[in-house]
Simulated scan of single mutants.
Amino acid sequence: MERVRIFESEEELSTGLADYVAQLSEAAVKERGNFAIALSGGCLIKLMRKLTKGPYVKTVDWSKWHVFWAEEKVVAKKHPDSNYKQAKEGLLSKVPILPAHVISINRCASAESTAEEYEFRIRQLVRNRTVDVSRSRDCPRFDLILLVLESDGHVASLFPNHPVLAEETQWVTWVSDSSAPYESVTLTLPVINSAANVTIVATGSVKAQPFASATGAHPAQLVSPEHGDLVWFVDGPAASLIGRSDIERSDS
């Protein structure tokens, strides 16, 4: 099922996102005993800031969280552009997540080796059921994958017209693209579409055109969970080119 939630401001979107993530966390912990979440970069960590405050910092069962990455640049963890560094400073260091439950991407000799090592770690955690298994294919079933819509329509590190969009067997792959300053590793579309829940966040007027596009040319249009839910969290400027009568509007 696909839904779109529109918020008048980024502040309201941040509150709605915190509520939604907290609800999914509670449901996953009750059902499986764990909450496996994959984060992206960009504006996402800033938008998740409400989770570091009351009531969430006390009511969320952080000990059951296992944090992964939908994408990461192949840079050192302390690099200013590292998604891990941004998440560590803006979220992970402010809530009681167990350090061992943060599955960081370790930079290896090459981007390809980095992707292979990260996929190996995910496979280990699927074997012990920290991460659930897809119902229909050889893929992990994350409880939630959080993505950000970028101005060219890409999500994670899945760029327009890139060969990686056709990847069907690997869980993680590496990407080099002329529009990006660094090589990166990314979850592939089969993994994203095997998740129990996928959320795509779109904020700002620069995202209005890719969000409104229905041509299928943008990688974001390829995100369609097979046995899960896709929910868009969109602010007013990003939704400015669409008719709101056809989609769910959120006032909270």
Rank of each mutant, 00 (worst) to 15 (best):
Trp174Asp: 15
Glu31Ser: 05
Asp246Asn: 13
Tyr20Ala: 05
Glu248Trp: 15
Ser240Trp: 08
Val206Cys: 13
Ala22His: 06
Lys58His: 07
Ser113Asn: 08
Asp61Thr: 14
Glu12Pro: 11
Leu51Met: 10
Leu39Met: 15
Thr114His: 03
Glu183Ala: 06
Tyr56Ser: 02
Lys77Cys: 15
Val4Pro: 01
Val223Cys: 10
Ala28Gln: 01
Ala100Met: 03
Glu226Met: 14
Thr52Ile: 03
Glu72Tyr: 01
Glu226Asn: 07
Arg5Tyr: 00
Met48Ile: 07
Phe211Pro: 00
Gly153Cys: 15
Val175Gly: 01
Ile242Gln: 15
Ala22Gln: 04
Leu149Phe: 09
His66Asp: 06
Leu47Met: 04
Asn197His: 12
Leu91Val: 10
Asn34Arg: 11
Val234Cys: 08
Val198Trp: 03
Thr52Cys: 04
Val4Gly: 04
Pro219Gly: 14
Val133Leu: 07
Gly153Tyr: 07
Val155Glu: 03
Glu2Val: 11
Lys64Pro: 11
Ser245Trp: 05
Ala87Asp: 02
Lys46Gln: 15
Met48Cys: 10
Glu112Gln: 15
Leu98Asp: 13
Glu226Ile: 15
Val234Glu: 03
Pro99Ala: 10
Glu72Ala: 12
Pro80Val: 10
Ile192Ser: 00
His154Ala: 15
Ala70Asn: 07
Asn106Arg: 14
Phe142Thr: 05
Tyr84Met: 05
Glu168Thr: 08
Thr199Ala: 09
Pro181Asn: 10
Ser104Phe: 09
Leu91His: 09
Ala156Arg: 00
Thr203Arg: 04
Ala28His: 02
Ser245Thr: 15
Trp174Tyr: 11
His218Lys: 15
Thr114Val: 06
Ile122Gly: 05
Phe7Ile: 09
Val57Ile: 09
Pro99Gln: 12
Ala87Thr: 08
Lys78Leu: 10
Phe211Lys: 01
Lys46Met: 07
Ala220Phe: 05
Glu71Ser: 11
Asp81Glu: 12
Val29Leu: 07
Lys58Gln: 14
Val223Met: 02
Lys94Gly: 10
Lys94Pro: 14
Gly216Val: 13
His79Cys: 08
Val74Gln: 05
Ser179Asn: 12
Leu39Ile: 13
Glu119Cys: 01
Asp246Gln: 10
Ser104His: 02
Glu89Cys: 13
Arg5Ser: 01
Met1Val: 13
Tyr56Asn: 00
Ala195Val: 15
